[in-house]
Amino acid sequence: MIPKSLGASSSASGVAGIRRLIARHKTLDWLFGLLGTLALLLATLVFAALFGQMLINGAPQLSWEFFTSFPSRRAASAGILSAWVGTILVMLVTAVVAVPLGIGAGIYLEEYARKNLLTDIIEINVTNLAGVPSIIYGLLALGLFVYQFGLGQSIAAAGLTLALLILPVVIVATREAIRTIPQNIREGAYACGSSKWQVVSHHIIPYSLPGIMTGVIIGLARAIGETAPIITIGALTFIAFLPPSPFSNAEQLISFEWLLAPFTVMPIQMFNWISRPEEAFQANAAAAGLVLLLMTLSMNALAIWIRYHFRKKIKW
């Protein structure tokens, strides 16, 4: 049967019918748009609740003393001095280990690796490690760093653990950044007589640096908030002293004693306070959480900004 006009076959009322149909479809369209907006709104509300609740409970605790005091049995005088110092030192170890290893591995996989079994194994490993739960890294560290290497519950053990944890993040970011560099840039450099390493060091690394930085910052922000692996290696939760200063030793300019010192970090301190039954400590937990949240959010924001900023600047 050949319809007389479009749509008329199914709807007796012709054009008016089509219009009604379209109107109904458009209503559905509009409703889904509303649904999406609501979902977005819900996410915003949850974030507002999370942030607001911490702000209300924690903000009164935030004072200069909170940052300069050690944890204490009395909630009112307890602070996060050992926690933020510990976090910075652990992050230092993590960055020093994970950044060169991650960038090096990323460069190897993108620029050097031949298509062979070894490369496949490495690639599968990186993908797989990115999906391994963080607490498993804690178990690895407990067995390997704490007992086998005899590092104990130290800053070095924690830093190494978190470095392995964020290694896939750095590798993936490095690879993705390198992949955006067009092949004709490499050819141009080779045609000028560059060696492979010259191409990598003069071109590949500088041009992919914004992308790499984004990955490094996101990785470190993740490491700062990681709690489970640090608990798993058995890090103490009550530390009322600072690790030895890197600059304390008069004879050597820099001492590495702090690497083997016991420590606490921000999320561990927060966890410790959450676990206390007394309500006064919950306020401390909120304050510590607020500081932690601001640290990670500002790092993530910085990473996002770098990415958007440089994406606009360099157009291949």
Partner: peptide, 15 residues
Amino acid sequence: RMRISMVFQKPNPFP
């Protein structure tokens, strides 16, 4: 390549 240079199909200046 140090003796023989090349100019490519698409301009490929370095950034």
